Measured scan of single mutants.
Amino acid sequence: KTVEVNGVKYDFDNPEQAREMAERIAKSLGLQVRLEGDTFKIE
């Protein structure tokens, strides 16, 4: 899975870890996480 923030992509081998990281980043920035294919987009 991939986490994308402001056009910057971070790859994770563990999908659960990617989801947790995406949620943590989104919460700290006051944004939403949206799953698009294999990418968690933070917008």
Rank of each mutant, 00 (worst) to 15 (best):
M21I: 09
R19K: 10
V33Q: 02
E36T: 06
N14L: 08
P15T: 10
T2S: 14
G7R: 04
R34V: 11
K9Y: 08
A26E: 00
F12G: 00
V3C: 11
L31I: 07
A22L: 05
K9L: 10
E43R: 08
A18I: 03
D13S: 11
F12P: 01
V33G: 02
V5R: 02
K9H: 07
A26K: 01
V5P: 00
E16L: 10
M21G: 01
L31V: 11
R24K: 12
T39I: 13
M21V: 12
D11P: 10
T39G: 05
K1T: 13
F40H: 02
E23L: 13
V5S: 03
R34T: 10
K27Q: 12
G7T: 03
R34E: 04
D13W: 07
N6Q: 08
V3P: 01
K41C: 14
N6K: 06
D11H: 15
G30H: 06
K41I: 15
N6Y: 13
A18S: 02
G7A: 03
Q32A: 13
Q32F: 12
R24M: 12
F12N: 00
Q17C: 15
G37Y: 05
D11F: 15
A18C: 11
G30M: 05
V33H: 03
A18T: 01
N14C: 14
K9D: 03
V5W: 15
K1L: 11
V5G: 01
L29Q: 04
Q17T: 11
E43L: 12
E36W: 08
G37N: 08
V5F: 14
R24F: 12
A26Y: 03
P15M: 12
E43V: 14
N14W: 07
S28Y: 14
Q32V: 14
L35S: 05
T39E: 04
F40V: 02
V3T: 01
K1V: 13
R19L: 09
D38Q: 08
I42K: 01
N14D: 14
G30Y: 04
G30K: 06
N6L: 14
N6H: 11
I25H: 02
K1F: 15
E36M: 06
L35D: 05
S28D: 10
V3D: 01
Y10T: 05
E23P: 00
V8K: 12
E20Q: 12
M21N: 05
P15K: 07
K9T: 11
E43F: 14
R34I: 11
S28M: 14
E23I: 13
K27N: 10
D13F: 08
V33C: 15
K1N: 09
Q32I: 14
R24W: 13
T2N: 07
E16N: 10
E23C: 15
F12M: 05
V5A: 04
V8G: 03
D38R: 05
G30L: 04
Q17L: 12
E4D: 08
R34K: 11
A26M: 03
R19D: 00
T2C: 15
E23M: 14
V33A: 06
G7D: 03
M21D: 01
A18Y: 02
K1W: 15
K41E: 02
A26P: 00
G7E: 02
E43I: 13
L31P: 00
E23A: 10
T39A: 05
N14H: 08
V8M: 11
L35K: 07
Y10M: 09
N14V: 07
L29K: 04
V8Q: 10
I42Y: 02
V3R: 01
L31R: 05
K9P: 05
Q32L: 12
E23H: 13
V33M: 09
D13I: 09
V5E: 01
R19I: 06
F40D: 00
E36I: 10
A22P: 00
E16M: 10
E4S: 10
K9W: 06
T39C: 15
I42C: 12
K41Q: 04
E16H: 09
N6A: 08
V33R: 00
E36D: 12
A18E: 00
E36N: 05
E23R: 11
S28P: 02
N14A: 07
F40Y: 15
T2P: 03
S28V: 12
Q17E: 14
L35I: 13
R24H: 08
Y10V: 06
T39M: 08
N6R: 07
E4H: 07
Q32R: 13
M21Q: 06
I25Y: 07
V3M: 03
F40K: 00
V8T: 09
E16Y: 10
K9V: 11
P15V: 11
M21C: 15
G30R: 06
D38T: 10
G7P: 02
P15N: 08
S28H: 13
I42G: 01
N6V: 04
M21F: 15
L35C: 14
A22E: 00
L35T: 06
P15Q: 09
Q32H: 12
S28F: 14
L35P: 03
G7F: 04
L35M: 09
G30I: 01
M21S: 05
E16A: 12
A26H: 01
L35A: 06
T39W: 03
D11C: 15
K9M: 09
V8I: 12
E36S: 06
K27L: 13
E36Y: 11
E4R: 06
G37P: 02
T2E: 03
K9G: 04
K9S: 08
E43P: 04
R24I: 09
A22F: 06
V33P: 03
I25T: 06
L29S: 04
D11I: 15
D13R: 09
K41W: 07
Y10S: 03
D11K: 15
E4G: 03
V3W: 03
V5Y: 14
T2V: 12
K27I: 10
S28T: 11
I25V: 09
P15C: 15
L35W: 08
D38M: 07
R24L: 11
A18P: 00
Q17V: 10
L29T: 04
R34Q: 07
Q32S: 13
V33E: 01
D13E: 12
F40M: 04
T39P: 01
L31T: 06
E16G: 08
S28I: 14
Q17R: 10
D38K: 06
V8P: 01
